[in-house]
């Protein structure tokens, strides 16, 4: 049974971090939708409500998203519906329902590095940085690959650009976790292909992205990039799909993703 012995609402990040570090089972409380499903016995729950981290704003050429911002706010905020072809809202729309997305926070979603995450895959296709209280600011890809250390995710920084992007997920049923998800983006003919729910966490297909960037998107290179993505990334098996199927889906979805980006470009 989920228990919280003590609960604090610190006034500043340093205090929050201090409490978090005090004991192994002290935990930051996000939206709690996922947390409550576990049997976790939390010593001190750290509630960041007082830190005013619930916001989306534009700062110095970046879109800044506070850790306590809900997924639903990202989904509906004009800055995010109007940039990158609304790839972030698109990535969130199939997650359970509105009332769920009203509660779940972006900080918990990214910090947890869930393999099934829709949001991380979409963020990875953009120029996203993660700001951690202790480890500081770093590209999302670096954050994903670094070993898990206790830290406090403060905010996300997404470079504001004219990047075109598209997000596709494949689900066995509409509100299920994705069997596979794909985000493709392009800025100044430089391409990024990110694939998540493999079922391990999202990763960028570096070689395939480079191929498109170098040779441009033609029907041959699109096919080749899709194929190469499915070859350079690893896929696993879980109850939602086998590795073989994910590999095949990856090829189909990457191809469609690239085509969608090309289609937005011509609009």
């Amino acid at each position: 049974m989920f228990t919280i012995l003590d609960l604090v609402q610190p006034d500043n990040l340093a205090e929050a971090y201090q409490i978090l570090s005090d004991k192994r089972n002290n935990t930051i409380l996000g939206g709690c939708a996922f947390l409550k499903m576990g049997k976790k016995r939390i010593n001190t729950g750290v509630d960041l409500t007082k830190l005013k981290l619930n916001y989306i704003q534009e700062t110095d050429g970046f879109i800044e998203i506070g850790a306590m911002t809900s997924l639903r706010d990202i989904e509906t905020h004009p800055l995010l519906t109007e940039h990158y072809n609304g790839v972030l809202p698109q990535s969130l729309r199939d997650i359970i329902g509105v009332q769920f997305r009203n509660g779940v926070t972006v900080g918990a979603s990214v910090y947890s590095k869930y393999g099934f995450s829709d949001l991380i895959t979409a963020l990875l296709s953009l120029d996203t940085e993660v700001e951690l209280f202790k480890a500081g600011r770093m590209p999302l890809a670096d954050f994903l690959s670094k070993p898990k250390e206790k830290d406090l995710l403060v905010r996300l920084w997404i470079k504001k650009t004219k990047r075109q992007a598209s997000y596709l997920s494949f689900r066995n049923s509409a509100s299920d976790y994705a069997v596979l998800n794909v985000a493709v983006s392009m800025l100044n003919n430089r391409w990024t292909i990110a694939v998540g729910a493999r079922p391990s966490k999202a990763a960028i297909a570096i070689s395939a992205s480079a191929l498109l960037s170098l040779e441009g998107a033609t029907s041959e290179t699109i096919e080749e990039a899709a194929k190469r993505t499915s070859e350079e990334l690893s896929f696993g098996t879980n109850t939602r799909g086998t590795a073989t199927y994910r590999k095949a889906l990856c090829r189909a979805l990457v191809k469609r993703g690239i085509m969608e980006v090309l289609a937005c470009k011509s609009n």
């Binding site: 499903m37 509409a174 109850t239």
Partner: peptide, 23 residues
């Protein structure tokens, strides 16, 4: 569905998907 020791693997609405209104 059950796992290899006979424990039910589909014991929540997250793992056992009834149709939503989109399905």
């Amino acid at each position: 569905r059950y796992d290899e020791i006979g424990k039910m693997a589909t014991n929540s609405f997250m793992q056992y998907k009834i149709p939503s209104r989109k399905d």
